[in-house]
Simulated assay, not measured.
Amino acid sequence: MLSLFRVFALFPLGLLQVMGWLLGWLAFLASPSYRRRFLANAALAGVSLRDVVAAVGHGGRMVAELPRLWLGRPLPSVWADNGCIERALASGRGVVFLTPHMGCFELSPQALARDYAERYGPMTILYRPARQAWLAHTMASVRERPGLQAVPTTLAGVRQLIKALRQGRAVGLLPDQVPPEGMGVWASFFGQPAYTMTLAVRLVQQTGATVLLAWSERLSWGRGVRIHVHEMQTPLAADMTQAVTQINAEMEQMIRACPAQYLWGYARYKQPRGES
C-alpha cells in the first residue's frame, strides 16, 4: 500500500482532486450509512443541501490528496491573513492551533513549519494512530517533516505538547475529533450534544498559551490552498464546559463560512469509545 501511495504522490494535484471528486461521489452513492450521516449532520446544522452538495466531492478530495501531502512535493499554499501568527509566536507564550475537519486540514501544520519553524522552533501536532499496523507506521513516519513533530494521542504525546508550549512553540489539534471516554465533555455543537475534547482547554489553562483558529481552503483546479487564521473572539472561560462550548461555537462559525468544504460525513455525534 505504501508503494501505491508513492506512485499517487507523483500525480499532479489537479488530477488527484478529480479522482478524489469521483471517489467522494462513489462513497456517497454506494454507502447508505455514510449518506444518511452526511445529510443528517448537515440538517442538524441547518445548512441547505445546495450549500453542502459540493462537500461530497471535497470529502473524496481530502482522501485523494493524502499521498501528495504525505509523500510528494509540498502543495502550493498562501496565507490569507497571518499577522496574528507573528504576534502570537513572538509573544513567547506558545500557541495552540485549532483546526476542524475542514478543507485540506493536513496542510496547515506543514505550512506553519515551513514558514515559522526556523524562527520559532518546530511545531508539534497530535494525531490518532490508525488501528491497522501498516497505516499506523506510515502515518507516524510521513508526518515527521523538517520543523514538524507528530505525537500520538497518548499520555506521552500530551506531555510533549505541554513541553512544546512551555518552550513558546506551537502545537496543533483537531478539536472536533471525538475523544475517548474520560477525555471530553458533552457540549453543544450546532445545537446538539457532542462529546468534545477538553485537551485544548487544559493545554491553555496549564501553559497560558494563545489560541488561534485555522483552516485551509482548497482552491479549484489544483491551484493549492489558501490558509485562514484568526484569534478567538473572546478569552476562554475558566469553567471547562463553557470553554469547550466556546471552541465548538468558533468551529461552527468557521464551518458556516464555507460549508462546502466541511467533512459532513464525520461521525461527530457518536458515543466515545468505552461508553455504553
Rank of each mutant, 00 (worst) to 15 (best):
A237D: 15
E144F: 01
V95K: 09
S33D: 14
Q205C: 06
F190R: 00
G57D: 01
P129H: 11
W134H: 11
L75A: 05
T207G: 14
V185L: 02
T245D: 02
T153R: 08
R166T: 11
A117E: 08
I255C: 09
S33Y: 13
H228D: 09
I255R: 02
L107G: 00
R36G: 10
I125W: 04
N41E: 04
L22M: 11
Q177V: 12
H228K: 07
L107Y: 06
A113Y: 08
G46K: 00
G20R: 01
L199K: 08
G24V: 03
I85F: 04
P272M: 08
M102Q: 07
R273W: 09
A130G: 14
P193S: 03
H137G: 14
V56R: 12
Q17C: 06
A156N: 14
L263R: 07
G20Y: 02
Q271S: 08
E250N: 00
L66C: 01
Q110P: 11
G224F: 15
L22P: 03
Y262K: 03
A187S: 00
W79A: 06
L135H: 15
G172T: 08
A187H: 01
A45K: 01
R169K: 13
A237T: 13
G72R: 07
V225S: 10
L199D: 08
F97E: 05
M251A: 09
A136R: 15
Y266Q: 04
S216W: 07
H230Y: 02
A238E: 09
V63I: 15
M62E: 08
R218W: 15
Y266L: 05
G191T: 02
I85W: 01
W221A: 13
T234L: 08
E86D: 14
V151I: 10
D239M: 07
H230E: 10
F105N: 00
T153S: 15
Q242P: 03
L44A: 11
Q192E: 07
A111I: 04
A64D: 03
L2P: 03
A156G: 14
Q271K: 15
G168A: 07
A238T: 15
H230A: 11
A42F: 02
S48H: 01
D51S: 14
V95N: 02
E181D: 11
S220V: 12
R36S: 11
T207F: 02
S276P: 15
F97T: 05
R36C: 11
L173A: 05
L263S: 14
L39P: 11
V201W: 15
P180I: 06
Q233H: 02
A43E: 03
C84T: 06
S77I: 06
Q167F: 08
I255D: 04
P175S: 05
F5A: 12
R143H: 12
F11H: 07
Y269G: 02
L98H: 02
Y262T: 12
N41S: 03
A88W: 12
M1L: 03
R145K: 09
V53P: 06
A214S: 15
R202Q: 14
R268C: 05
Q192M: 05
P152H: 10
R159M: 12
N41M: 06
A130T: 14
A140N: 15
F11D: 02
L75H: 04
Q160M: 09
T245M: 03
S216C: 04
E118R: 12
M254V: 01
